[in-house]
Design a protein around this nucleic acid. Structure first.
Ligand SMILES: [Mn+2]
Ligand SMILES: [Mn+2]
Ligand SMILES: [Mn+2]
Ligand SMILES: [Mn+2]
Lengths: 220, 220
DNA sequence: ACCTCTACTTTGAGTAGTCAAACTAAATAA
DNA sequence: TTATTTAGTTTGACTACTCAAAGTAGAGGT
């Protein structure tokens, strides 16, 4: 069984590979950035992960997950997201706080317990941030959505929030911005980089492009 | 913060110190036995724990917990037992299976979440095995009970099961032997080392002295 | 074709935890 | 008292993970 360290590496590579331009290849710099480790540490680990058949690593070109690595990554992601859903729905913790907790628990919870949690929640398809939960066999919905930052005026539904930072999520909550919420992009000032939004029938709010980058929406 | 390794050492020392004849002093052999580590490993760790002010260690004489070590041990015990109670009462896992799970989760669950669990359970005083749960401030009920193996015929209440082994606990379950249960010691054969028991109005059962050693009872 | 900069790799070192095997203090037996 | 046994200690080695700092491959700029 992979250690929690290895699980975190595989998860990071998996997530970076989805955003990768170059096929599914991930640059080591992105990994070290994501995990907050030095470049040398990551190089060393990549050799190790390759020797364990988790990844395929070409020096100076990057890494891609091999089958067993992807499988392991999906299991970690499944545990992470089920745990988040559990903490919000059953334990009534704030969705802004559950990420950190899940980052640790994802390595500590047994298969038996994760199965129990899954049943208890009725096999949820998405976590509290709108991220899809892989099935026990490693299937994952790979729908993609446009960022609010890249979209024109109109009516949308918030599908997913792609940022973990707790303060940001708390701010979203305070404006009822959570997955599922309907909203209207009223107008945008491209030069100032500010977007005006209406959520339900509340007062319009202003939001910067960076903040809008993490709000993934569907036209409706 | 102590690592999970250190937490397990402190917990082991704490639990062994309660059974200690020589004050609260614990022999290193008992620690290595309990944790399944070699003697040398434990010696090395004791020096380290002393340097961190968790224990007081006298070579060849044993260790005792210092204040901060005892405090840490009680916190781990609290987490462990609350988690067990949670897994049984809320998650509906079998009491025979929760120990292993708790052994890991006790190091992974945050204070915030443990507090949530405690509230959700209504501040329970004992875990599913009848072990007392220390309070957040480190107070613990230290009531002691006689082992069924050491007691004469009569009516008793099962208060506590002092053994973790899952097969044993499953066997107890199958005879309705769980904390709180009333039972009658019908007779005992001191030479054969066999005790005859009646639980509620079921058929009498036979139980050996070793098995009866783990059943802690109160006269009633 | 050469230079430079960036991203990556290598090297050397350190922490935390562990074991096997050699050694020793001290309790117990003779 | 001396010898033996037991419990504990020391030593040397190993795995897993990490960093800082020195070194290098190769992409892009001139
Ligand atoms: Mn993690
Ligand atoms: Mn999430
Ligand atoms: Mn533990
Ligand atoms: Mn217990």
């Amino acid at each position: 069984m992979p250690s929690s360290t290895v699980e975190d590496y595989l998860k990071a590579i998996f997530q970076l590979s989805r955003k990768s331009t170059d096929g599914k290849r991930v640059a080591l710099g992105a990994v070290s950035e994501q995990l907050g480790l030095t470049a040398g540490t990551v190089t060393t680990m990549m050799k190790h992960l390759q020797s364990e058949d988790f990844v395929s690593y070409e020096p100076r070109r990057g890494v891609t997950l091999r089958e067993s690595g992807e499988k392991a990554a999906l299991q970690v992601l499944r545990r992470h997201r089920l745990i988040e859903a559990f903490l919000v729905d059953i334990m009534k913790l704030d969705w802004a706080d559950v990420h950190e907790e899940a980052e640790i628990l994802e390595h500590a919870i047994s298969d038996k317990l994760i199965q129990r949690i899954d049943e208890m929640l009725g096999h949820p398809s998405h976590d509290p941030h709108g991220d899809p939960i892989p099935t026990a066999t490693g299937e994952m919905d790979n729908a993609t959505f446009a960022a609010l930052a890249d979209v024109e005026s109109g009516h949308y539904q918030l599908m997913r929030v792609s940022r973990d930072d707790s303060e940001y999520l708390k701010w979203l909550s305070s404006h009822s911005l959570h997955p599922g919420q309907a909203l209207q992009l009223v107008s945008r000032d491209h030069f100032a980089g500010v977007i005006t939004l209406k959520v339900a029938d509340a007062e319009p709010i202003q939001i910067g492009e960076t903040a809008a980058q993490a709000l993934l929406v569907k036209k409706c």
